[in-house]
Design a protein around this nucleic acid. Sequence first.
DNA 1: CAATGTCTGGCAAACGATTGCCACCCGCCG
DNA 2: CGGCGGGTGGCAATCGTTTGCCAGACATTG
Lengths: 332, 332
Amino acid sequence: MTDKPPTLRDVAAASGVAISTASRALSRPGRINEETAVRVREAAAALGYTVGASGRALSSGKTGTVALVVPDVSNPFFFGIVRGTQAALRAAGYTHVLVDTEESVQAEERALRMLRTSADGAVLAAPRLGDEWLVAWSSALPLVTLNRPVNGAGVVIDTPGGAVQALEHLASLGHERIAYAGGPRTSWSDGRRRNALRAAARRLRVEVVVLGPYAPQREAGAAAADAAWQSGATGVLAFNDLLAFGMLERFGARGVDVPGQMSVVGCDDVFGADLVRPALTTVSAPLERAGHRAADLLLATIDRRSPGPAGAYDELPTHLVVRDSTGPATPR
Amino acid sequence: MTDKPPTLRDVAAASGVAISTASRALSRPGRINEETAVRVREAAAALGYTVGASGRALSSGKTGTVALVVPDVSNPFFFGIVRGTQAALRAAGYTHVLVDTEESVQAEERALRMLRTSADGAVLAAPRLGDEWLVAWSSALPLVTLNRPVNGAGVVIDTPGGAVQALEHLASLGHERIAYAGGPRTSWSDGRRRNALRAAARRLRVEVVVLGPYAPQREAGAAAADAAWQSGATGVLAFNDLLAFGMLERFGARGVDVPGQMSVVGCDDVFGADLVRPALTTVSAPLERAGHRAADLLLATIDRRSPGPAGAYDELPTHLVVRDSTGPATPR
DNA sequence: CAATGTCTGGCAAACGATTGCCACCCGCCG
DNA sequence: CGGCGGGTGGCAATCGTTTGCCAGACATTG
């Protein structure tokens, strides 16, 4: 059968010192005579000892664990984020727990409640929870939000900036009427983008027609594509790549040539954007970096103990990647 | 500042009972007078109490945590797996920790060592560790392997079966010389597939030429495509979809028409396989189900306490999804 | 009325690690 | 020779929860 893992007591016994000494020898370099410390470390190695997370957590208050809370693990947008947080946490020796709330506010709150006692902090990617709640929670658990600043803090991906680049790109190709297939009402990012597009449209003297909201999924693409076509636009910006994929399929099915009759721009540059045909012109978002950054920020506030109200704000730039789904406007 | 989360002691005090009673009221239905229990539960709810994971773990030995250990989070193959384990664990009330070993055997072992004290078990997806080690570890920590049986136990995706279907498909299209662009030597799955293909080739009277090994990544696709072309084959089976994507790109770049001059079959049907053009004919693997299954199996052995040597073996069927990257053979 | 059981609820001992505080051993200086 | 201080290492409390065991209350039965 499976015998118990060695404990600090075993290590102490094996090296002939007290438990406290063993503990210090392993985690408080300098506090213990180097000679003794070496003996302890050797014993620990020989026994294959690893400090037990629960014991440590109980007595020190630090769990060595950070959670990433996402609304939907299967969305490729979050793959990049996961990768980033994973790398950052791994490097810092933290354990990475993954929570999928399946878009449910309640699940999100439940997760937070449980994390409060079992994690040192959490990265909330595109949280669904209301601002007030987020603020309240952040005083109970170090939190860093992604793509949804709370109290002016958090990591944000500047998709509005990218969207404007996309608009400029289309305008320069002669498009004068451009559709924006928007995302969920609850998306903070979407609202910001609408505003940025409105302003840019005036400046560029093009017309932007806002469509939607659409679910940020491939399945919603058909409806979005039909609406975009119907709107008389010659180019369309999609809320995200998934939606753009769906639109591409729909245009293909309806015999609308992309980019001949309709230019399509996605957002995020997720896995697959360069795989579809035509390859998708899209606003590239530094997903992995964003995850990494968020985790780093969180780690910093965790050990600086400065969850100060002026938590850091970090905006990551995006840029337009031009591929084959956009081209010169052709009058309809 | 952040005030401490309420403890069982607070709940007990608030409801005028002893800590032990409070504990039982919350987790041992029936053991305590229902009236008292209700009082306790109300107090707990009012205080927003949640049992602390570390305390519980220390005293009961159960951490309520299960880890998924993958060699590379950014591989879309594992996205599906993650999704499955996540769903299963969530449903069972377990916490999901994600460990990326970055293909490193040492990282894998390090992870296992730490998990031993901080998790109730682990799902090892495509572990790099040697069999002996895996066997040894499994006596210290409940383990379920995915796509790599140990001691005849684990969850396995029957890709050889799918590969044979693919071969039949190609054979029926008139292909007589078919290449197999193999994966890493360390892949158990790859070895199995080679054997299955060899046997099927004899039966179907076609010739299979084995190429590789190639890294299961897009970047390796160019080399694989060139080798396949060079081999004189008219169809090629790729170790996985990523490799197939890379091959498709390369064939495109070299002006080799797919499926006109070369048929390509992938494996796994990961996200993107139907996005790429031509849409990829591939062996569809039930990734999410596999992850779910593995987690369920693990959970079962965890609470049945039966890590018996005859751990369960489960083979999930695959099937060929025919899309546009395969077609009739044309003589070269 | 005594003996026996059944419910309830509390006491206290774990679980594994950390850490404040104290004790001891030395060497050194005055 | 006494006092002082730095360097080491041990004692014991503490963190939050679970659980074996016991004790009282009350009901049931012979």
